[in-house]
Amino acid sequence: MENYAEKELLNQPKKPDWEHVHKLMEHLKSNLEFYYLDLNSLESLIDYYFSKLVAKENLDELRELQQGVLELKNQCYYLKNRLRSYEKRKEILENLPVLNDENKTLEDEIQKFINEENELEKVIFSMIQEVLGNDTADTVILN
């Protein structure tokens, strides 16, 4: 009989730790703010080195990178709005006995966004490093 009662307790959904959920959402919000600023920096880097990048790289590839930055900025804006919407509804959500899938889905989407941003950043930095590396080599040879 005791085993049955224990199994019933284990099978019941656990009440979510809302304080943890709110801290997680604040952390995600902070991450999105950081990555939005990072995307602005990447955009500025592309603009600053545009003429040098065009000379070394294919113009179409450079335009794709610019488009990728713009798409990620739009995705970041969308995710920030979803977080704001979540925050507005948190009082309603707290009255639910179990945590809904919205939190996990939002967290997964933000992580996917961060991974895509990191990959784009690597490509942009490697292109700029290649351009700068060639410039310093040319300067050394000319002097």
Rank of each mutant, 00 (worst) to 15 (best):
S85Q: 00
E109Y: 07
K90T: 01
T105K: 03
E109T: 03
E116W: 00
S51Q: 15
N95W: 06
L45G: 06
N95S: 10
K112P: 01
E109G: 03
E116G: 09
L70A: 12
Q75D: 13
L106A: 04
E91Q: 03
R84K: 13
E43W: 02
Y49Q: 00
L106H: 02
E87F: 10
S51I: 12
L72N: 06
E43F: 02
L83W: 02
S44G: 08
L53F: 05
Y86Q: 03
K80N: 04
E116F: 05
R84Y: 10
L70T: 08
E107C: 07
N74D: 14
D47V: 12
E119P: 00
V54E: 07
L62R: 01
N103Y: 15
E119C: 11
Q111D: 10
D38A: 01
L99F: 13
N58G: 01
L42H: 12
E121W: 06
D108R: 13
I46D: 00
D101C: 09
E87R: 05
Q67C: 11
Y49P: 04
Y78C: 06
K104E: 12
L62D: 10
L45A: 04
V69A: 04
I46V: 15
I110C: 10
F113E: 00
V69H: 03
E119Y: 00
N74K: 14
D38K: 08
N115I: 09
L106I: 07
L59Q: 15
N118A: 12
E109P: 05
E71V: 13
N115P: 04
F50A: 07
E109K: 11
